[in-house]
């Protein structure tokens, strides 16, 4: 009973906030709605018994990813209204619905056949975080290391791409010097 109430409440809130994030023309509203949706999604993870995944969702998505997006928003000056030349809404909606149904059917069709066996069955007596640790550092050790290298590569790429001309601190310059620098850049 309570599971049903929490499921429908969270589902309604997540769908509503993601719909706002997709349709609004204000970048700030989109970012805020996205953050709300990310945090609400972790509610599903806690209901599903994936405690560690829920904590990671809050830390990584709501903490790191959205902070990065907020930085990007400040940089791109999208605080004013975003002007977009919109294509036909009906065509876009129909195409999105069709391709969604197609993708979900393709991916979820094996679930219908009832012959699925658990590779790494979860044990009731052990906590979720402990189980995740055991499976991650035995069966998924190589993907884990590869993911670590990938994150390192992404970090270096981010620094190299975004960090150009950051040796000059704008806060320490006088007004005229800043204007001169701006003219040089243009």
């Amino acid at each position: 009973m309570f599971e049903a109430i929490s499921f429908y409440l969270f589902a309604f809130l997540v769908i509503a906030s993601f719909w706002i994030a997709v349709t609004t023309s204000q970048a700030l509203y989109a970012l805020t709605a996205l953050a709300a949706g990310m945090i609400l999604i972790s509610g599903f993870y806690f209901t599903l018994g994936a405690d560690f995944l829920g904590a990671i969702q809050i830390i990584v998505y709501s903490g790191a990813v959205l902070a990065l997006y907020a930085f990007g928003m400040m940089f791109f000056d999208t605080t004013r209204e975003v002007k977009e030349k919109n294509p036909n809404k009906m065509i876009v909606g129909t195409l999105a619905a069709l391709s969604t149904i197609l993708t979900v059917v393709i991916v979820a069709a094996p679930l219908v056949s009832e012959n699925i066996v658990a590779f790494y069955p979860s044990v009731e007596s052990i906590g979720n975080t402990q189980q995740i640790g055991v499976v991650l550092f035995t069966k998924y050790l190589v993907p884990f290391e590869v993911a670590a290298v990938m994150l390192l590569v992404a970090m270096i790429a981010g620094i190299v791409l975004a960090g150009k001309k950051m040796d000059v601190s704008l806060t320490k310059l006088a007004e005229e010097e800043i204007e001169k620098k701006a003219e040089e850049l243009v």
């Binding site: 990584v60 998505y61 990813v65 990065l68 930085f71 993911a147 791409l161």
Partner: peptide
């Protein structure tokens, strides 16, 4: 989630 995090870093750069 790991892939999403690195995608955001490189994409924003």
């Amino acid at each position: 989630i790991a892939i999403a995090a690195s995608e955001v870093a490189v994409g924003l750069g």
